[in-house]
Simulated assay, not measured.
Amino acid sequence: MTDQPSPEHRVPDGVDRATVEAVGRLTEGLETIERARGHLYSFHQLTGAADFQIGDAAEQLRAAGHGDLADRIERELVGRNVIEGRWTFQVVEEYDDGYWSAVRETERSVREELLDGRRHVFEAGLKEERRTHGDPRHTARPAGRGE
């Protein structure tokens, strides 16, 4: 029956709305962290690409007869740490191993403790409130996803 939410998206027995909302907000925070992590990976890749572009520019300057400027660019910029002692891959690794991992693990453990590990229970509730029940374009779940 596609007009009822899947069991994994239903509020567990005995769990109040305030708890569902609080866990939903925590999950929303995790989702924001995931987006930030994506931007961090973009920073990592863009910085790496820029380092190669700057290296190419140094080679082109050298070929154009500007060896002193090419040497300066290679010495001061190519391969330079972006933060003291770190290239971007090291920043990404520290972020992943520290903050990102801690947020993911805490969000998961809170869901386990309070919602039997169920994901997106708050959003499933929003869907139930906002969809047009009985309209085939507004089913609770895809066809074929039985209980």
Rank of each mutant, 00 (worst) to 15 (best):
T2H: 08
P5A: 13
S6A: 13
E8T: 03
V11P: 07
D16I: 01
A18W: 00
A18N: 06
R25D: 12
T27A: 15
G29I: 09
L30C: 09
I33Y: 06
I33E: 08
G38Q: 13
H39Q: 13
L40Y: 03
S42K: 14
Q45F: 10
T47I: 04
G48W: 11
A49W: 04
A50L: 14
D51T: 06
Q53K: 10
I54H: 01
I54D: 02
A57K: 04
A57L: 15
A58K: 06
Q60G: 01
L61D: 03
R62Y: 07
R62N: 11
A63M: 06
A64Y: 00
G65M: 14
L69K: 07
D71P: 01
R72I: 06
R72H: 14
R72M: 12
E74T: 12
E76V: 07
L77R: 10
V78K: 12
V82P: 00
I83F: 13
E84S: 14
E84N: 13
G85R: 12
W87D: 12
W87T: 05
T88V: 08
T88S: 15
F89K: 12
V91L: 13
D96T: 13
S101M: 10
S101N: 11
E107W: 00
R108N: 11
R111P: 05
L114W: 00
L115N: 11
L115T: 11
R118Y: 06
R118C: 03
V121P: 01
F122C: 04
E123H: 07
L126T: 07
L126V: 04
E129C: 03
R131Y: 05
H133K: 10
G134R: 03
P136K: 08
H138W: 12
A140R: 02
R141A: 03
R145A: 05
R145F: 05
R145M: 06
G146N: 10
G146Y: 05
